[in-house]
Write a protein that binds this DNA or RNA. Structure first.
Lengths: 231, 231
DNA sequence: TACTAAGTCCGACTTAAGTCAAAGGATATG
DNA sequence: CATATCCTTTGACTTAAGTCGGACTTAGTA
């Protein structure tokens, strides 16, 4: 499967990152990328590992996380389809700053850094596209820091729900809903808390008739109250 | 003072950001940049303001911060000399994502975005240099999120001190010290807390003979204990 | 020099959320 | 299908850190 022209190779070239390349450059990119399937729970890299290259998520789900000294995990990003990650060390020359683990069966493209850096050093288009990606990521990180430093968990969770509803496209239904595709543990860690607290929070919001939980789905009963909590 | 060739213009061109430019490009940059003095407390931009361009700190001190709905401030960055800020919207086309205020009399270079984007779109060198800057900032943000989500204030403060000692170059003195150049309020906000808590913390660490506070200076009495706290 | 405003410190109180332990559910594996 | 393992929920308890009120100190300006 490695390197081969396959269904994903074409997808890869349509990504914003690689748009507006010459045919020759496209060929180079393709010969560089290693597309591979990964099983749930596989580790891609650990914090501090020597830098090998970055990844692009083509299918599935990946979490980017840190482990504190006490062993507590906190998830910084849940990578979205077609998003790249592990690209920070490309430019500052350091090691991987975080851990990355596949949390559902996935397909990833791996781009080895040496060759890639050579390729882009003289390609302002790709550089600019990467900058766009970085800018978006910085905005999200900035947002997260603000939330972590000023908001309580209830508020962070409310924001998360509102965000997910927007993405799900159910915002205008009488009962907008979110399907949670990750484990409660991962969700808790993403919100900066633990499962115990998340569990209690879900119960409380149900008692207050703000949400209704049905298996992996959360239905919003009172979006205005939810918005008030998100403040 | 605007636009003129002055002592700072040359400095500007030696920055990593603008290194390796052709003389022609250098000239363009200089004609673009507006160098100005700012008085302490002047606001550079507010979150949500329409994007005008980015800044480079030549002299002084600038804080980048957010204000929560409840009015609580949290400082995301304390800009270092020669660092640029307000550069995220250059690439994702949004508004300013944060507030920026000068917290000591300062000299700043302002770079209007329209012209600058035109200039760099075909200049992979500048793009690459900006990417390096972004990568460093992302590392710091990542670090901060981890700290905020897993660490208590004592630990964050200990890390801050160790960091500052390293920068100050007094790490190997019998009593390494840090000179706090910002107000306690700003420091508290940077650490993600309030002055009351910071004040109590300082007192506690003094009682435990880990630090000694003398005016604006903090002397480290027991660096090993401090390192233990930083965990 | 004096007055105002801002910054700092401190004690008493409150509270959100973490810890711990135990019990139920769900899922996977042989 | 039975056992084991992991995931989730729950209650009782603990604690870090925020809130509030007030006093004191420093700095800035008239």
């Amino acid at each position: 499967m490695k390197n081969g022209y396959n269904i994903y190779t074409e997808t890869l070239l349509t990504l914003p990152l690689f748009s507006e390349l010459t045919p020759h450059q496209s060929k180079q990119i393709i010969s560089l990328c290693k597309i591979r399937n990964y099983k749930k729970n596989e580790i891609l890299f650990f914090e501090g590992d020597n830098y090998m290259g970055f990844y692009i998520l083509l299918e599935g789900s990946v979490k980017i996380y840190k482990i504190s000294f006490e062993g507590k995990e906190s998830i910084l990003h849940l990578i979205k389809q077609y998003e790249s990650f592990g690209d920070v060390p490309l430019f500052d020359g350091g090691k991987y700053p975080v851990n990355a683990q596949v949390i559902a069966d996935s397909v990833l493209a791996f781009v080895p850094h040496q060759e890639f850096v050579e390729l882009i050093k003289n390609n302002s288009t790709i550089c600019f596209n990467i900058l766009v990606g970085f800018a978006k990521k910085m905005r999200r990180l900035t947002q997260k820091i603000e939330e972590f430093s000023t908001k309580e968990i209830t508020s962070r969770f409310a924001r998360y729900l509102l965000e997910e509803i927007k993405k799900s496209g159910t915002a205008n239904l009488p009962e907008p809903f979110v399907k949670i595709t990750i484990s409660k543990k991962n969700l808790a860690s993403y919100l900066g808390t633990i499962t115990d607290t998340l569990s209690r929070l879900l119960k409380r919001l149900q008692n207050e008739k703000i949400i209704r939980v049905d298996g992996k789905s959360i239905f919003i009963l009172d979006i205005n109250k939810l918005k008030a909590l998100a403040r």
